[in-house]
């Protein structure tokens, strides 16, 4: 527990976004509770508040690309000539959320299949607290990227961010909300603190917020995306950042994982992808094929 507290305090650094976020949250909750008990007119205010919140939720969702479009983009074969070129953009900033064990393996394989040489990219990885194994594998991949991609900064920059776990394997569902809150607090910072290698003095605010947040199933991923959605709802980040891609774990062939259900029901992911035909049929997700299956002797 203590290290979680320390981590949260450490997370307050930088822009104080976390403090703002928390103060706002507490203020709203406190005022509503007092108000609802003592003042009759607060019911109207609360109603309006909920209405505005819902309106913002829907309007953020309306910006999402449609599943059909996603299917069209999910073409790996270059012979279809649908290859987007992002090397001319001022910044390309991805945030990958690593879970543990299999989630990490899948995510790193996906990153490995996505990577291309371009100087304007930044990759941030969010790692669960104490997940040494993921960190080791991540370092190996980053070292490989730096070794293989041609010099002159074409491998871009990268950094990693440690975050308390939302739910440990076998952790009781009763204590989960508290660890989730700790995760959310640090998540605000992971989403808003600019990379050290891309300071605002040199790049302006281009690298301030990630463009795309990719997650594939750890509970931490949902918390981070929920925070991202809230930040967008309350205009704390620009509307054209933090696009969320959820890829259901390759292990789920017929039913969704708990995180998958949360993403499907809340609809906060801009792109909801699954990796098996049957699951795609059942959920209406974008079928991306065996995305994480490694290429043998490719």
């Amino acid at each position: 527990m203590e290290d979680i507290v320390y981590e949260c305090i450490d997370g307050f650094g930088g822009d104080m976004y976390t403090v703002l976020f928390l103060c706002g949250l507490f203020a709203v909750t406190g005022v509503s509770i007092i108000g609802l008990v003592y003042l009759p007119w607060t019911w109207i205010t609360a109603f309006i508040g909920v209405f505005i919140g819902f309106f913002r939720h829907v309007s953020v969702k309306l910006e999402q690309p449609r599943p059909q479009t996603g299917r069209r983009w999910m073409t790996i074969g270059a012979r279809n000539a649908l290859v987007p070129d992002t090397s001319g953009l001022p910044a390309v900033y991805f945030l990958y959320i690593l879970g543990s064990g299999g989630h990490t393996t899948e995510m790193l394989l996906t990153v490995q299949r996505k990577i291309r040489a371009q100087a304007n990219q930044h990759r941030r990885y969010v790692i669960s607290n104490g997940d040494v194994d993921s960190f080791r594998r991540l370092s190996a991949l980053e070292a490989k990227i730096r070794r293989v991609l041609p010099d002159g900064g074409l491998s871009g920059t990268s950094d990693s961010f440690t975050i308390p776990r939302a739910r440990r394997v076998h952790q009781s569902l009763l204590t989960a909300p508290f660890s989730c809150l700790a995760t959310a607090i640090v998540a605000v910072n992971a989403l808003t603190r600019e990379p050290e290698d891309r300071p605002t003095t040199r790049h302006g605010r281009q690298f301030k917020y990630p463009h795309v947040v990719v997650t594939n199933g750890p509970a931490t991923g949902f918390i981070v995306c929920l925070v991202a959605h809230l930040l967008k709802m309350f205009y704390m980040v620009p509307q054209n950042r933090l696009k969320m891609v959820y890829i259901e774990s390759w292990a789920r062939t017929r039913t969704l994982s708990l995180t998958g259900k949360l993403f499907l029901w809340s609809g906060i992911a801009d792109m909801f992808c699954v990796q098996h035909e049957e699951l795609a049929r059942r959920t209406g997700g974008v079928m991306v094929g065996h995305l994480t299956a490694p290429l043998v002797n490719g």
């Binding site: 983009w73 270059a78 953009l89 390309v92 490995q112 996505k114 801009d270």
Partner: peptide, 17 residues
């Protein structure tokens, strides 16, 4: 890095949005 034919392009499209 993987050949252009095998590259995952979805995330790049998402950046373009």
């Amino acid at each position: 890095p993987v050949s252009a034919a095998d590259r995952v392009t979805l995330f790049d499209w998402m950046v373009l949005t």
